[in-house]
Design a binder for these strands. Sequence first.
DNA 1: TTATTTTCTTATCTTAAGATAACGTTTTCT
DNA 2: AGAAAACGTTATCTTAAGATAAGAAAATAA
Lengths: 198, 198
Amino acid sequence: MDSLKAKQNFRLHLEPYAVFTDSEWELFCNHLEFVSLKKKEYFVEAGKVCQHFGFVHKGSVRYFHVSDGTDITGYFSFENEFMSSYKSFLKQEPAVNYIQTLEDTELILISHKSLQQMLADERLAYKMERFGRLVAEYYLCCYEDRVAAFITQSPEERYLKLLETGRDILQRMPQHYVANFLGITPVSLSRIRRRILA
Amino acid sequence: MDSLKAKQNFRLHLEPYAVFTDSEWELFCNHLEFVSLKKKEYFVEAGKVCQHFGFVHKGSVRYFHVSDGTDITGYFSFENEFMSSYKSFLKQEPAVNYIQTLEDTELILISHKSLQQMLADERLAYKMERFGRLVAEYYLCCYEDRVAAFITQSPEERYLKLLETGRDILQRMPQHYVANFLGITPVSLSRIRRRILA
DNA sequence: TTATTTTCTTATCTTAAGATAACGTTTTCT
DNA sequence: AGAAAACGTTATCTTAAGATAAGAAAATAA
């Protein structure tokens, strides 16, 4: 991976959350790790502590749970989106889920240890606290919407909404992943699709 | 309301998120508002911007959506818990939900304007950023669990889990509020309860 | 206290989702 | 290219949830 380009792109996409001076940016970059994963490789596995907060530079990942042998999709992250098993990462406790790449994927990572170091480094602390706050707030809002969708909408309504706003999900994800992202089975989504066409 | 006691209690419950020096605490307290609401009064109404982030000193509140005339519970907050229509508050956009007291309730409030002032005040900025980050992260983790419950568990399983962990919800909330908190109708919850007893 | 509203249960009917299996198609792997 | 795996649809059967209405019990208000 071209880590120079990746860094530039990362800096750009961080702007809503943190604008670094050049010297801050240099300190920050010392903590970044660049990792390329092949399709279907795991970034997080259930039972292990998620050690990194990540940014998808290229490719995409899927976050899913496994129960009774079937896997159930929680969400997806595409290019230029953050990705982590947040609870596991933040609390440094074993994850209850997996994160797996869906394609060959390039990630920029910040380890929990690095984050703590930056939060403890006077030169970066304030900016990192703010960065963390804004990222967490962003995801808080996303989750608020997602919970609202589950309690106020039927599966069919959730699918129709996804059709409107669906980002890359519908184009790039196999339908059975989309199905349990919506909280239903693949068979059920197939029926919903037919119902809508009729 | 005894605002001195309320302040003390608030300071105690903020400790996981922010520990203030006495002088910081004094600055912080200048921004606090103390409000008593009667049962069934509204703290947030759909269509209006949520202006405050709140802490429940006494009593309890319910967060709910209204669609097609029926109301659907999103969550509850009890004594010593935070409460806000986060997305509306953070983005200062119209809320899509209501927040209503369930009993006579005493709240400690921070207005959006006050929060911005504190974030801009050199003497408090760092601590407030950190405070904001830790609160947002806390709720992020709660929401992560809540979404996981919707996609991995059946309504019955969610109810059984609530029986185990249910805080005050089951004791203090009417059952039809609990029902749509679980994403189902009151009638359906009643059936689940019967099924479990049998 | 009486009247009214709220709350919970139960019953009926309709609708849709889950489980499972079969089949054809497409993709992936070697 | 050929074999295997993954994917999407369809069908059947079972189960449970939604909609609606009615009635009893409890809480609240006048």
